[in-house]
């Protein structure tokens, strides 16, 4: 140990990096990955898939960020914001990939800030207002379970960039799912009040499950995870009542437009600004 200062010690081995406060030893997950679209991969379909996954992540990140200064505990606030930032990172890479392959050359900001609600392809579950902590936990459990199952398959995608993004995301999503599952068990198997709120949250989330499962075939896997967690939490599996419509074809609730207005406001008021 060369120094009593804890962060100097932790950063040891990265002496060349004097900006340790920004973190050290980072790796670029896309370093060395060939960005050419492989033969046999439909560029339009690939771009659409990237945008869909990015929209889920961006909208979820915004809802998670809303917990900042409002979470029940300081530690949970940081945890939820961290998860949101992981998803934001995934969204950035996915938008960039979409812009590379769809022929428009758009950058990530063009997708995030300069599209209207009808152009977004996220599931409606992601855009619902945060509300109760239990609701956020149930939603996070569902979305992270689905996304993890889907990303695990995408690690074998023929597009090497999407496969690399998925490989990075799998580790993040495994933590998100674990975080949500631990809270789900804690609250479901907690007090009468926490159990009641979890039941209510399940009922609010259940109608939106069908929308997730229509797009990609990971349903059995996700349902098995949810069943395992709900059983451990002493909760019933919610009754499955799908709502008509789908965010995947641009049909959204009234909650998406205000969310995007807040997200996009500064960028639209000051286009081309840098900070």
């Amino acid at each position: 140990m060369s120094d009593d200062h804890v962060y100097m010690t932790l950063a040891e081995g990265h002496e060349d990096d004097t900006r340790w406060a920004y973190g050290t030893g980072f790796e670029d997950p896309l370093h060395g990955v060939d960005t050419a679209v492989p033969d046999g991969v439909d560029a339009g379909e690939l771009a659409a898939l990237c945008v869909t996954l990015a929209d889920d992540a961006l909208v979820s990140a915004q809802r998670l960020a809303e917990w900042t200064t409002r979470a029940p505990e300081l530690e949970e606030e940081v945890a939820l914001a961290n998860i949101g930032l992981d998803l934001l990172g995934q969204a950035r890479m996915l938008y960039s990939r979409a812009g590379q392959v769809d022929g428009t050359g758009r950058d990530e900001d063009a997708y995030a800030y300069f599209r209207d609600p009808g152009d977004f392809r996220n599931v409606r579950l992601a855009e619902l207002p945060g509300g109760d902590f239990a609701f956020s936990i149930v939603r996070l459990l569902v979305l992270s379970s689905w996304r993890l199952a889907h990303f695990e398959r995408l690690t074998a995608h023929r597009d090497p960039v999407l496969a690399a993004i998925a490989a990075k995301g799998v580790k993040e999503l495994a933590y998100h799912r674990q975080y949500a599952a631990e809270w789900a068990v804690r609250l479901g198997d907690g007090t009468e009040e926490s159990h009641r709120r979890m039941r209510k949250a399940q009922e609010q989330v259940a109608p939106y499950l069908g929308e997730l499962f229509t797009a990609y075939d990971v349903r059995d896997e996700v349902v098995a995870v949810l069943r395992q967690v709900t059983e451990a939490a002493g909760l019933p599996m919610p009754v499955y009542r799908p709502l008509p419509g789908s965010g995947r074809i641009g049909e959204h609730t009234e909650h998406l437009a205000p969310l995007l207005a807040e997200l996009q406001g500064v960028a639209r008021a000051h286009p081309e600004a840098t900070w």
């Binding site: 140990m1 804890v6 010690t9 932790l10 950063a11 040891e12 081995g13 030893g25 505990e73 300081l74 530690e75 940081v78 945890a79 674990q178 975080y179 631990e182 804690r186």
Partner: peptide, 24 residues
Amino acid sequence: GKRGLNHVHVGSLHAADDRMALTH
């Protein structure tokens, strides 16, 4: 730390139990 030889005290936090303390 990555190259550290021992665990270093970095601070404190609140948690309901050991498991939550680790995730926090």
